[in-house]
Simulated assay, not measured.
Amino acid sequence: MSQHPPHLRDRAAARLRRAAYERLPCQPVRDLLGPDDVDAAYAVQAANTRHACELGRHRIGRKVGLTSSAVRRQLGVHQPDLGTLLDDALVPSAGRVDPGRLLQPRIEAEVAFVLGRDLDAVTADVEQARDAVEYAVAALEICDSRIAGWDISIADTVADNASAGLFVLGPDRVDICDLDLAAVTMTMHRNGTQVASGSGADCLDDPLNALRWLANAALTYGEPLRAGEIVLSGALGPMVPVAAGDEVAATISAVGSVTVSIGSAEEVHTHG
């Protein structure tokens, strides 16, 4: 358990909240938490989640971050983490995002699960994880960081809610009972040009491994996964930057397709 004083965790939480509110990235919080104190970082994440819920937002799921070796190499962080999905982060399928909601967005494609039952005990194998899934959909996660320049250690990204931003769920719901998720393939296009590809095996060898990891980590930190929650299981390939005017589409074989648009520069000027 973390030995960091509570007042330092409070300062880290406040720094991240201010960055989100002011729409200005902040310096890393590892000066307050240390670069590797994951327990302290999860305490910061939990405090800011409580603060968001006190303001009327609601938790609707969880995400696993840093499941892809490509993403870990991009960020220089070498272990998975978990974050919280809040209701106002869900973008409608094929929806358009106001770029003013984003700071330093990067997008990735992944398999999302909707749980049909709780995972509130140790999840020993992927079949236990599979049995808890009601259905899967293709998803896009628009990751974001309140930390300037994505200059993150594991403590920074955990404290910053696993660099969560917005997410989009595709329209097709798939029964995964007999589906080999490790074998699915992903392609992602930005403005018609392919910018990423990968497979289910790129997500901790199988997206169900990511779900199992998440279930156990959530249990460890006192908030087990519940029926009805959405789980973003992690990237199937590298993250790519997105900006105003971009349109992104991803297809995951045997699962479905998903698209999102980022509002154009003209819209930013008109509404800014």
Rank of each mutant, 00 (worst) to 15 (best):
residue 123 T to R: 08
residue 179 L to K: 07
residue 229 E to Q: 14
residue 125 D to A: 07
residue 3 Q to W: 08
residue 160 D to F: 03
residue 194 Q to P: 10
residue 1 M to D: 11
residue 93 S to E: 08
residue 182 A to G: 15
residue 178 D to F: 01
residue 233 S to P: 07
residue 41 A to T: 12
residue 138 A to P: 11
residue 48 N to R: 08
residue 153 S to I: 09
residue 187 T to W: 03
residue 119 L to Y: 14
residue 265 A to R: 13
residue 114 V to G: 04
residue 145 S to Y: 09
residue 211 L to M: 13
residue 85 L to G: 06
residue 227 A to L: 01
residue 108 E to D: 05
residue 155 A to K: 10
residue 255 V to I: 13
residue 117 R to L: 09
residue 159 A to Y: 04
residue 99 P to S: 11
residue 44 V to Q: 02
residue 91 V to F: 05
residue 240 V to A: 03
residue 65 G to T: 01
residue 237 G to Q: 01
residue 3 Q to E: 15
residue 156 D to T: 05
residue 6 P to Y: 02
residue 149 G to C: 04
residue 19 A to Q: 03
residue 240 V to W: 02
residue 15 R to S: 12
residue 74 Q to P: 09
residue 64 V to L: 13
residue 9 R to Q: 14
residue 179 L to H: 08
residue 213 W to H: 13
residue 159 A to V: 09
residue 224 P to S: 03
residue 151 D to E: 11
residue 80 P to R: 03
residue 30 R to C: 11
residue 199 S to F: 00
residue 136 A to M: 05
residue 194 Q to H: 03
residue 112 A to K: 07
residue 118 D to Q: 07
residue 48 N to Y: 05
residue 185 T to Q: 14
residue 268 V to H: 11
residue 24 L to Y: 04
residue 264 S to T: 15
residue 34 G to P: 04
residue 22 E to D: 12
residue 194 Q to G: 11
residue 95 G to W: 02
residue 247 E to H: 13
residue 170 G to F: 12
residue 202 D to I: 09
residue 7 H to Y: 14
residue 17 R to F: 03
residue 121 A to Y: 02
residue 82 L to R: 04
residue 25 P to F: 10
residue 77 V to M: 01
residue 222 G to K: 09
residue 41 A to C: 08
residue 172 D to P: 07
residue 43 A to F: 00
residue 183 A to Y: 06
residue 91 V to A: 08
residue 150 W to Y: 14
residue 145 S to K: 01
residue 118 D to E: 10
residue 71 V to C: 00
residue 6 P to V: 15
residue 13 A to F: 04
residue 201 A to M: 06
residue 257 S to T: 11
residue 25 P to S: 08
residue 137 V to Q: 11
residue 117 R to S: 15
residue 198 G to R: 01
residue 46 A to W: 03
residue 209 N to C: 15
residue 254 A to W: 00
residue 163 S to T: 15
residue 263 G to S: 14
residue 19 A to C: 06
residue 238 P to E: 04
residue 141 E to K: 01
residue 272 G to S: 09
residue 6 P to T: 14
residue 122 V to Y: 12
residue 12 A to W: 01
residue 109 A to R: 02
residue 92 P to R: 00
residue 206 D to G: 02
residue 204 L to V: 09
residue 103 L to F: 08
residue 176 I to N: 12
residue 126 V to L: 10
residue 206 D to T: 00
residue 137 V to M: 12
residue 118 D to C: 12
residue 116 G to N: 13
residue 261 S to Q: 14
residue 87 D to E: 10
residue 145 S to V: 13
residue 70 A to E: 07
residue 55 L to K: 12
residue 127 E to C: 02
residue 168 V to I: 10
residue 44 V to N: 06
residue 53 C to T: 14
residue 233 S to N: 03
residue 183 A to G: 09
residue 265 A to K: 11
residue 63 K to S: 04
residue 226 R to G: 06
residue 51 H to L: 13
residue 121 A to I: 15
residue 68 S to T: 00
residue 125 D to T: 00
residue 242 V to N: 07
residue 67 T to I: 03
residue 73 R to H: 10
residue 25 P to E: 10
residue 111 V to Q: 06
residue 91 V to Q: 02
residue 79 Q to M: 09
residue 10 D to S: 07
residue 252 I to S: 01
residue 221 Y to E: 09
residue 7 H to Q: 12
residue 188 M to T: 10
residue 259 T to W: 08
residue 247 E to S: 13
residue 225 L to G: 11
residue 238 P to N: 05
